[in-house]
């Protein structure tokens, strides 16, 4: 490791750390603002609110029907996680183990929904879902959310499956395991850490997936993040603190899963999706 000790290098390092500090302080202050406001009785023109209360949580809970929204949110997420796990892992296994014509095209097909922002493909997708009558229903929301998550699981799992030696599977075959036993006793235990990591990432991303849910959700199929958007959008109708209480509930839901996920994955994996192909 090379350390520069000249004055210029030290000044430069100080400037870089100041920038990082400035960013982190603003980020934390922004989150603290939401939390403080949700516990405030009245907060106008002062550093801190006039008094503290928890009544906004009960009022937000009933006003926004958060219980229903939370149930829908977890049903959507559960369905998305299970389906993208099943579709993604099987496809990743085939792509990791076999070379065939058209494989590169297929990988590109799975890469595109991750590269193209959801707003761009979400509008034609929502149009199709409205035409088929799926939009506004529970399964419409699940289908829309699956579009980026299935490719995500595939691209995370391919390198993971590639590093498992195929000889292990061949050995199980030699000892007479059928496909089902091979999967249950050999592949699944070996793949479990990778599947767990991929699905936790899917979970965290789906809670925060706004655009696709927003475009296809109906009144009974809204997830928490979309309900939060409508609450902020109609700000003025309800007390700011009430909306902030809802935002805190959303934050807590997300952070619990983020903390669980971070025990199994590296923070950078949430962004970089999969090991980038060599360029």
């Amino acid at each position: 490791m090379i350390r520069d000790t000249t004055l210029g290098a030290r000044l430069w390092a100080a400037a870089v750390w100041t920038t990082v500090g400035f960013f982190v302080i603003n980020l934390i202050a922004m989150i603290a603002t939401v939390v403080t406001s949700s516990f405030a009785t009245r907060w106008l023109g002062t550093w801190l609110p006039a008094g503290w209360t928890t009544r906004w949580y009960t009022s937000a809970w009933s006003e926004f029907q958060l219980w229903d929204v939370l149930i829908v949110t977890f049903q959507v997420i559960g369905a998305v996680v299970v389906i993208s796990g099943v579709l993604g892992v099987t496809a990743a296994y085939a792509l990791a183990r076999r070379e065939f014509r058209g494989k590169r095209l297929l990988v590109l097909l799975f890469l595109l929904p991750l590269m193209i922002p959801s707003m761009t493909f979400g509008i034609p997708l929502a149009t199709v879902l409205y035409r088929t009558g799926l939009a506004g229903t529970f399964w419409g929301v699940v289908a829309a959310n699956l579009v980026p998550t299935v490719p995500f699981v595939i691209l995370v799992m391919i390198p993971f499956i590639e590093q498992i030696d195929p000889k292990v599977e061949a050995a199980a075959r030699v000892f007479g395991a059928n496909t089902f036993k091979l999967f249950l006793y050999v592949l699944l235990p070996l793949l479990l850490p990778g599947i767990l990591a991929a699905l936790l990432l899917v979970l965290v991303r789906t809670i925060a997936m706004f655009e696709l849910t927003f475009l296809v959700a109906g009144p009974t199929s809204q997830t928490l993040v979309v309900a939060l958007y409508y609450a902020v959008f109609a700000a003025g109708v309800r007390a700011v603190q009430s909306i902030d209480a809802m935002a805190v509930i959303y934050m807590v839901t997300t952070l619990i899963w983020l903390i669980i996920a971070l025990r199994f994955v590296n923070p950078t994996q949430i962004v970089t999706r999969a090991k980038q192909p060599a360029h």
Partner: peptide
């Protein structure tokens, strides 16, 4: 810390910044 705003999403960041 940096992965926080990504996982919280744009809607929450918008709500936070409106106050902040």
């Amino acid at each position: 810390i940096l992965v926080l705003p990504i996982t919280l999403g744009t809607v929450l960041v918008a709500e936070g910044l409106l106050n902040y």
